[in-house]
Structures are given as C-alpha cells and as structure tokens.
Write a protein that binds this DNA or RNA. Structure first.
Lengths: 219, 219
DNA sequence: ACCTTAAGTGAGTGATTACTCACTTTTATA
DNA sequence: TATAAAAGTGAGTAATCACTCACTTAAGGT
C-alpha cells in the first residue's frame, strides 16, 4: 500500500464507521435516505427517528442539533469527492510522463469519480441540494477547491498547454470546461436521468473525446 | 412582429403582470427573494408577508396554499427558459441555410439564454433547487423537454450530422454534451461564481468553440 | 460485586407552522 | 350614489417542530 493510498484511506474513514453504535448507524442511514428524498428542511427529526427505529432523544444524544447531523453526513462527502486531488501521484505521474496525454488523466479521473458517484448517489444529492443554503458547507467546498483541486489541476493543465496538447485558453477556462463537462455528465447520468438506458463505457469515452477535441490546439 | 414573436410574447406573459394587484406583486417579489435565499421549505408564509408589507391572510387570498405560490413562480419559468425552442424559426432558419453552421445556432442560443439568465438569477436558483423535490415541476420539465426541446434539437443536430459538420455520435449524446456545457457555463457564471471577474464575451466564444471542436467530425 | 460512564428512552415544552374566518376596506359597475 | 364583488386584514387554531430532561438500561474497568 503506497503512501498515497494511506492518505486516501484516512480521508475515506474520517467519520470512522467502526466506532459507531448500531443505533447511530441506523440514524445516519435513515437521515441520508430522507434528506436525499425530501430535502433537509422538509425532513423532521421525528421522522428520522421513526425510520431508524430509535427514540427521538437518541438522535440528540449523538448530534447536538439537526444541522449537526446534516454536516456530519455532508461535509466529509465534499472531501471524498475531491479525494483524487489529495493523492500525490495525481500530479506526479503527469510530469513523469506516466500519463502520455491529457486523455489518460481524464480517463482515470472520470472512471474513478463515476464509480464513486454510482455508490453515493443519495449523498451527492444531499450535497448538491444543501450546498446552496448551508454556509459551512460552502466554506468547506471553497477550502477544498482552492487549496487542493485548483492548484493541482492548474499544474497539470499548464503542463499540457506547454506540450502543445491543449489550446491556449486561460487555464481557469480549461479547468471550468473540463469540470463542468464531467460533473454535467455525472449529474445527468445519476440524478436527472438515472433510468435512461445508458451505455456507460461508450458514453464515458465520448465524453473524454469531446473534452479532448474541444480543448485541442487548433491548426 | 412575426408570428413567432407573438407566441413568445404570450409565453412570457403567461402569468400576466398587468392583472396583478400591487400587494400581489409585492408578495411575489418577496417570495422570489426569500425562496432563492433560504429555500422554499425554510421560508415561512409569515416571513413573506412581513417582507411584502402585507397581512399573512392576503397571501392566502391569492394563493390557495404555500405550494401554489411556489408553482405560480417556478413553473412558468421552466417554460420561459425553454422559450427559444417554441419559436418556429429556430428550426426553420437552419434548413433554409440562414444559419451557415452549428456555431451560429449555438451563438444565438447562448447569447439569448445568457441574457435571460442574467436577469432571472433568483428564479433560476429556485427552479434548480426545487426541481429535485417538487413532482409537479418535474412533470412540467419533462413535458417541455420531450415535446419541444428534444425534437427540435434533434432535427437540428441530425441536419448538421448529415452535412458532415458534427461527429457521428448518437444524437442524444450530442444534445447532452451541448446542453450540459451551456447550462454548466450559466450555472458557474451566475450561481457558483457570480463574483469572479468574468470576461463574458470571450468566455462565451470559448464555450462555443469548445463545443464545436468537441463535436467536430474527426479526420 | 461495585461503580462510573455512556447509550437509550419518551413524555413534555415553548415556539413556530400553514392556514381559516369573520370582518373591514377598496374598487368597479350600473 | 347604491350595491355587489373583490381585496385586504389579523387574531385564532390545531398540528408539528427541534430540542430537553429525568430516568432506565447496558457496558467496561477494578
């Protein structure tokens, strides 16, 4: 297990499941389901308690407030979704030419985040929804994005711009176009049209080549 | 004024402002502001009444329920956002070669929706947020999309695919990539990072050429 | 076995919720 | 100017809200 893998492992177990009471686990599970279904503000603590098979007081034994419960669910998810950008090798491989081009990086990134999204749909729904209103979540997002995602992404894009693989747009524009295309795909695939008969492998490849050609240096 | 313009005029005045009481207008204005700021579920009718300078009962004189108030605001907005697809000339011009290529169509569409978004940010926020939970809004969206947006978009894309301007992806994929890129741009520009020092004209042109080259037939 | 601490409970609380209704005021029409 | 309809009001209501607290049960260390 590499050093990076250990870091990622830690990130994933920030809210370590091991030290949770069975009832606490049921509370979290019920809360995730209901927040995703009806939204945070429209879900009452009594409903959560009922679905979890727990007395309402038990919720407040573990979480000081209802908002505490939300944050304990949603904030770690923001970090987890950005996890690839915490791995050292994400940038390192690019400069060691272990990625031959932007396409390989994109392919790894999309496949990786696709699988993650697939297994965390309700959690992603909650984050997307509540990000709009919960300031503490916005802060966490801004922190992660500006301190981890943006600088590393910038290094990579600049590198491929110098190699002449990417059109000479501002780096921020390249990042914006890349991220919105990927996130747009994931949101469409898993949230807006989850029941559409997707051919995932092909659709991922088409998305990659759309980004690549869209950013390709024009002759 | 062409026939299309008349249709669009009608669409825009579906909830005709003219026949609104001054107090009713204040209620709508207050509701839009607060729903966008704190979300529908977290906004109480008493707060709306207070901000509108109106007795709480007045709200229910005009809107049977709180949800009625939301729908009267949000549902027409869905139609308005899709308005370009109701205009006959949207498709007609393409086949009369009045648009020389996909780029001109994209340019018109993006500029048009950019201006619209710019002047309706709170309303767009509300629609984006509440679409997740309000079934009646989802129905309206599906109806508009599958009956107006999708078929007309399909005609246009098929036309340019036959002309060899667009890569031979499935039409649905081309539409998905186009729409998510445009919507992704608008959401980033006006909702996620409204304070970033945007160079709108340049960013629009870059977005257009990103889509164009991304979809361009590869030699 | 004894004690301390943590986990779990559920009836109770004051505040707030969407909505009603009897009433007053304004507007429109004849 | 008389009259009916529409607009506006605000105190009142039952339900629900997040949260508390005195209490019981379970777990772990010595």
């Amino acid at each position: 297990m590499s050093e990076d893998d250990i870091i990622q492992e830690m990130l994933l177990n920030e809210d370590n499941d091991d030290q949770l009471t069975p009832k606490q686990r049921k509370i979290l599970q019920a809360a995730v389901e209901m927040f995703a279904e009806k939204g945070y503000a429209s879900t009452s603590t009594s409903e959560i308690a009922k679905r979890a098979g727990v007395a309402e007081g038990t919720i407040f034994r573990h979480y000081k407030t209802k908002k505490d419960l939300l944050y304990s669910i949603a904030v770690p998810m923001i970090t987890k979704f950005a996890a690839p950008f915490f791995a050292q090798h994400f940038v390192k491989h690019v400069f060691n030419d272990q990625y031959s081009g932007y396409d390989e990086l994109l392919r790894k990134l999309i496949h990786n985040r696709f699988e993650f999204a697939k297994e965390n749909i309700p959690l992603l729904k909650i984050v997307l929804q509540e990000m709009a209103f919960q300031h503490e979540m916005q802060e966490k997002y801004k922190e992660i994005f500006s301190e981890n995602v943006l600088p590393r992404f910038r290094e990579v894009v600049d590198h491929f711009k110098e190699k002449g693989q990417i059109e000479d747009y501002p780096t921020e524009t390249v990042i914006r176009l890349t991220i919105t295309t990927i996130v747009g795909f994931l949101v469409t695939r898993f949230i807006i049209m989850p029941d559409y008969p997707w051919d995932d492998e092909q659709e991922i490849e088409r998305t990659i080549s759309f980004i690549l050609h869209g950013l390709e240096t024009q002759s």
